[in-house]
Nucleic acid binder design. Structure first.
Lengths: 210, 210, 210, 210
DNA sequence: AATGAATGAGCTTTCATTCAT
DNA sequence: TATGAATGAAAGCTCATTCAT
């Protein structure tokens, strides 16, 4: 009856691993078939496990999808933080590093983009999805606006609104991701990054000369 | 047996009207519930008609969805053409008119945006959706690239690649739409247009002085 | 208001013709697709008429099927009678004529056989079908038994039961029809008739020497 | 993960039993209502199970029907084989045993006959049904022709074609089954067998004296 | 914890029937 | 009489969820 703490934590770790395994399988399925056509059977099969496994670990499908989106958002945020932390001290450097992040293979991966857009496609009708996205955006915007403000102040781009500039940048990133997703033949992550840089150079010519 | 041409055309017109009515109902449902949760019963109810009506006019649900997306794409293209035709002769004017178009109420309408993103969310997994989107994009890009080339030549922005600039602009538009859709509290179409203008002014400072 | 008798009968004739046209179309459809898969729309299309036409003339689908079977049975019975009437006076001749009838092109026609077996396949579960079939059989048996009795008496086949012999003959005919239907490659109406003759020669060797 | 062979085979056996249970229920329903009117709900109810059970085990209704026919054909063939094996060495004995088989209660059972004719009624329009029937017939004919050949050789019935005789016999069997099915009041399996014997005695008088 | 057979609600689809024209 | 758009009941099928093992 008595279970050692060690055993307990082993259990917990095993549980977490299984959950992650199922979330990964879910992403693969969504990328391949879309949210609407992804069944729990598909996910279980992709994970090499049995029918009832998802309900066992996530109780409902809704839950699984929420946690999948949360996982995706968490992953982005983690990389965002670590990028900010690792990059040089200047605002211009940091901003550049964040743009580079968005088009790094681990982020700008067709499978992950497909999953993002699958969720964005339902964001309007599923409140939980919106909440998760909003939370991420809020955090992202805070940091970005701060950086833009620094640049504007530094170089006296007097007529620029930092919020507008920053939001436009993030909008463009999303748009470029959509291009990469829809038209992989004409778009790749390098071209997309170049397009984003066009914008940065346009608004902050002093900082990002070619 | 003998049917007057008049009666035939009345029939045809009535059929077309009913189809449009069903497509409209579909858009409303998708905007409200998402593609995956929209049932044919929902559509029929929204249209005030009976169960079997969609199958009668579109044969399958798949068909209905394809035609709904096609309708959306066709509508955009028509407004795109007419905007090009009506606007003044200069490339700068035309480009500006097209940007304004994208944030005009009839286009930048939350319901329609929701439908666009619902379809983009499945573009990866439904070939027909991709085909329709690609076709629209191809046409859009052709015109836009031409306009950007004119501006670049006129003002000797020597180091700009017209394709990159134009694609970045359209990506930004999509991204701004997503912002309007996800965060209607912080975004409206005026702010979104302003953000797009930030980009235009950045890359073509000679043409779009503030 | 007043309609001449002539006009009335014209009307009646036209109605009857249309009904026959629909019954013919029904047979074609049943032969091609089976009863279960034949829809009223199929029948109408085959007849080159419009959707609601069957209900207009037969009220229900059930009705149409009943009358189709009735038509088939009536047609057989009519040819049966006329064959009896036309053939020579002897019982042996008459019996031979009836066997020949069963493998005549107008009867042993694959399309018609298919329809017969389609109805026989439901005879167990649809009382009306059974009734129609029973009625035809009763009449057929009466005549056949009489003929067999004559032959048995004439030639002193003392240990033959006329009812058994006659029923066996009609059973064999049905069985041969099934063979023609199922295995058209190995069976045709000539071979089938030859097989039936094998039986006749076996039981009545004096009358049907080779 | 590790599963004992015992458990696996238990599973497999349970699956097979459930499938057979559903096939049995299907036959009951077809005999009672016909193929066209038998719904999956009927079958499930007859089996005392739930709606989705048929699709779980057979995927589609079409599949269920095919396997039902296959089961019927397999059962016949098995009894055919065992009858051949068990009966005495002579061809005459074997042929007699096969005729007796056809009118044995386990074969000449009204429910089963109804099912046979239900399928034969669609054989023309459903290729799979035809294929299954053809396969059975081919095998049946092979053995029967061999037996007839032996008899013909033994007793010098010089002008008999073994193929015709054998096919006629099987045709008669089918026809007699139809009689038993349609007219159970005037036909029973004993009378039917007697009728078949009439034929055998007619063509092979030396072997089957009364 | 894991399995996979079973359930049953809910979906798309079919189609006999109705009815305004 | 004839049309064909519309209806709605009923069918086959899917799949999230449950549960005995």
């Amino acid at each position: 009856m008595a279970r050692s703490k060690l055993e307990m934590s082993r259990r917990t770790a095993a549980r977490a691993a299984r959950r992650q395994q199922l979330i990964d399988a879910t992403m693969k399925c969504i990328a391949r078939k879309g949210i609407g056509s992804t069944t729990l059977a598909d996910v279980a099969k992709e994970a090499g496990l049995s029918q009832g496994i998802v309900n066992l670990h996530f109780l409902t499908k809704e839950n699984l999808l929420n946690e999948t989106l949360q996982c995706l958002a968490g992953e982005y945020q983690a990389q965002f933080e670590s990028t900010l932390a690792k990059s040089g001290p200047g605002a211009a450097e940091k901003l550049l590093a964040l743009v580079e992040l968005d088009f790094r293979p681990s982020i700008c991966d067709r499978r992950k983009l497909a999953v993002w857009f699958a969720f964005w496609g339902e964001v309007q009708s599923v409140p939980t999805y919106r909440k998760i996205c909003d939370e991420l955006d809020k955090h992202y915007d805070q940091e970005m606006v701060r950086l833009c403000e620094s640049l504007i102040t530094e170089a006296r781009y007097e007529d620029l609104d930092p919020v507008i500039v920053c939001d436009a940048l993030s909008a463009m990133t999303n748009g470029l991701w959509l291009s990469c997703l829809i038209s992989p033949k004409t778009w790749d992550r390098h071209k997309a990054k170049e397009a984003a840089m066009t914008y940065l150079r346009g608004v902050f010519p002093e900082h990002y000369k070619k």
